[in-house]
């Protein structure tokens, strides 16, 4: 078994890493909002789900790909991928802002405590998932393949596949941009200030509602990118994937320390790799057991997660 594992180590690792980056981006949707508002935006999982459908629609309906189409190449391919990525990010970002406006803002103004927004979030999540279930007739929806999944090189014994590479590289670029935004811009500073002390920020003239909207927008953009990467990697979607991936990403956020960008990063990567290795060693049926046992053990020793600190302290 160990010998087999070593044979497959790098190919498992690449698969686990690209899955991990998808988790990181969704986890950011949870963590950004938590950092600023101290609330769990459960609807983030469904924002992800809707973003995957946005990608499918772009590839299938806007660019008219079918399962028997020729793969796109060259400029056309990058144009298609670029449109799908931007569309998914835009849809998810706008949806996130709307969810905050409709479901949370009034509750926050009325100082409703923590429970009402939580239920409101679960409610929004249900509405989105069930609407999608009705629209898709509960069926899984496939995204036709626009890009050939070719091997672009070898690393030790492992084939390096184009889609996994695109996901890892693009996710690293997005994360760098996000860190630059949070740490180096005025708006980023405002987000950190509100996260640290909302009342003091208000007294300093920061528009809290504006900062909250921006936070939801940024979290949504990241989650939307995850939706695109998910479809690029797995080429399918369904009304129920929000729940499945959302739980995993939420776990990653907690594992790393919620409210913390660095935490989302390490939490997501660890979870992606752990799931992949555990499935190989113990069989896929043991994946959840292994992952959650490790989560419990980690939280037992570090209750705030691996990097349990505030968003304010993330300086890359």
């Amino acid at each position: 078994m160990i010998g087999n594992f070593l044979d497959q180590f790098w190919s498992l690792t690449f698969g686990g890493l690209s899955l991990g980056f998808i988790y990181i981006l969704i986890a950011l949707g949870y963590t950004m909002v938590y950092g600023v508002l101290r609330m769990i935006n459960f609807a983030n999982s469904e924002v992800f789900m809707i973003a995957t459908f946005a990608t499918v629609i772009i590839i299938r309906d806007v660019y008219n790909f079918t399962q028997t189409s020729e793969y796109a190449t060259g400029f056309k391919l990058w144009l298609i991928l670029g449109t799908a990525l931007l569309a998914s990010m835009a849809v998810a970002g706008i949806l996130s802002v709307l969810i905050e406006l409709i479901a949370y803002r009034r509750l926050r103004r009325m100082n409703s405590g923590v429970l009402a927004p939580l239920i409101s979030a679960i409610g929004v999540s249900m509405v989105l998932a069930e609407t999608m279930r009705i629209l898709t007739d509960s069926r899984p929806v496939a995204s036709p393949r626009a890009m050939e999944k070719k091997f672009i090189g070898k690393f030790f014994d492992a084939d390096i596949r184009l889609d996994n590479t695109i996901i890892i590289v693009a996710a690293i670029i997005l994360l760098t941009l996000l860190l630059a935004f949070v740490n180096r811009t005025r708006l980023g500073k405002a987000i950190r200030a509100v996260s640290m002390n909302p009342n003091a920020s208000k007294l300093m003239g920061i528009n809290i509602d504006g900062v909250v909207s921006i936070t939801f927008l940024v979290g949504g953009l990241m989650t939307g990118a995850a939706g695109f990467f998910y479809v690029l990697k797995y080429e399918n979607s369904s009304f129920s994937i929000g729940f499945e991936l959302g739980i995993a990403a939420f776990t990653a956020a907690i594992l790393g320390g919620i409210g913390n960008i660095k935490g989302a990063f390490y939490g997501g990567l660890s979870l992606g790799l752990l799931e992949t290795y555990a499935s190989f060693f113990l069989g896929t049926q043991w994946k959840a057991v292994t992952v959650f046992t490790i989560l419990v053990v980690v939280l037992y020793t570090k209750p705030n997660g691996l990097f349990g600190e505030a968003l304010t302290q993330t300086r890359a």
Binding site: N4, D7, Q8, S11, L12, G15, G16, L19, Y234, N236, I241, E244, L245, E275, T276, S279, F280, G283, T284, Q285, K287
Partner: peptide, 20 residues
């Protein structure tokens, strides 16, 4: 042989076993 839940989206572990 392998037994994989119908909720699985990532099959890389099974794929690796098959290749091994």
């Amino acid at each position: 042989f392998d037994s994989v839940s119908d909720k699985t989206t990532d099959w890389s572990a099974t794929v690796s076993k098959i290749k091994t």
